[in-house]
């Protein structure tokens, strides 16, 4: 009578306690957008589901409508179009860290993807999910800000391109409308030499929500910095781009800069809070150190 495999399948189907109505798994973006338009905020969008299933743990049966993007193969591509890199929203962290295109052109993004969660999370979690969850601690967000990324949001009405720094509006809040889907992440490429650094501070090496992240991307003509992208995570209600500091660095030689002073500027430009992962004071102090470390690392890379 005792068996290792239970549950008559029909009982799960027929017996209630569930609010479930419909599961959509469209194979075209157009179809997905139509469903999204029809159900709006009634529907849960599922990409890699790593955030979705945690947020709805023990109440998956309460979700009425699902829109699963997993069969949208168009969103799983990484391509270069007109000197821009287009990354589909369904590209996983694992794809990012393995892609030669990303490693070569967006090394800081590849490094951040490699630090997400664990192998089990990276194989499923997507860049689109990381962006749409809009956690201030989302590891890909600071790198995207420092590369000057834009997001393509589509709806049945058309599409719009939103700059990364305008997309995030608060902790887990963003400017996406309930009839829109994020389809692509667009990042400009350059012929200039680009060097960068990614630093994630957390309590463990794996499976850790960041206490603080820093992404620095510098573009050089000769020795001169012609463009700087500096962004941080977990130090404010949204991931932040530190434009004031970027401005100070442009048109300078890296080795002429006072790293420690820049670190103090970073500290002055952020607004962290006390939480489980660290205190405000800790984050401010660490911000100085990671900035110095990042600039030293870039200096090393540039000179070698």
């Amino acid at each position: 009578m005792m068996r290792k495999s239970p549950m008559k399948q029909e009982s799960r189907q027929t017996i209630s306690g569930v609010d479930f109505k419909e599961y959509f798994q469209p194979e075209s973006i157009q179809k997905a957008l139509e469903i999204r338009a029809e159900y709006g905020d009634q529907i849960e969008v599922a990409a890699g589901s790593t955030d979705l299933l945690v947020a709805n743990y023990e109440k998956l049966h309460e979700i009425k409508y699902w829109l699963d993007l997993v069969k949208l193969d168009q969103l799983k591509k990484i391509e270069v179009i007109d000197n821009e890199l287009h990354i589909g929203a369904m590209v996983t962290h694992l794809q990012l860290m393995k892609s030669d295109l990303i490693k070569k052109n967006l090394a800081v993004l590849a490094a951040a993807a490699e630090d997400v969660g664990s192998p089990q999370i990276r194989s499923r979690g997507t860049i689109g999910g990381n962006i749409c969850t809009s956690s201030p601690a989302g590891d890909l967000l600071a790198p995207l800000l420092s590369y000057g990324a834009s997001f393509k949001l589509q709806s049945t009405e058309g599409e719009r391109i939103v700059k990364a720094e305008e997309f995030f509006t608060g902790p887990k809040r963003n400017s996406m409308e309930t009839d829109e889907l994020l389809t692509e992440i667009i990042i400009p490429l350059t012929d200039n030499k680009r060097e960068g650094s990614w630093i994630k501070v957390g309590r463990r090496k794996a499976l850790v929500i960041s206490t603080l992240t820093l992404a620095v991307v510098l573009e050089f003509e000769g020795e001169k910095i012609v463009k700087a992208g500096i962004a941080m995570g977990s130090v404010a209600p949204t991931p932040v781009r530190l434009k004031g500091i970027e401005a100070v660095m442009v048109d300078q030689k890296l080795t002429d800069l006072d790293y420690k002073a820049l670190g103090r500027e970073v500290k002055a430009s952020i607004n962290p809070i006390d939480d489980l992962r660290g205190t405000k004071e800790y984050r401010e102090d660490v911000a100085v150190d990671v900035m110095v470390r990042a600039l030293k690392e870039i200096e090393r890379k540039v000179s070698s």
Binding site: I15, S16, G17, V18, H61
Partner: peptide
């Protein structure tokens, strides 16, 4: 006590 986990959670 219920026939399914879902019903038990809901109740």
């Amino acid at each position: 006590v219920a026939e399914t986990k879902e019903a038990a959670k809901k109740a």
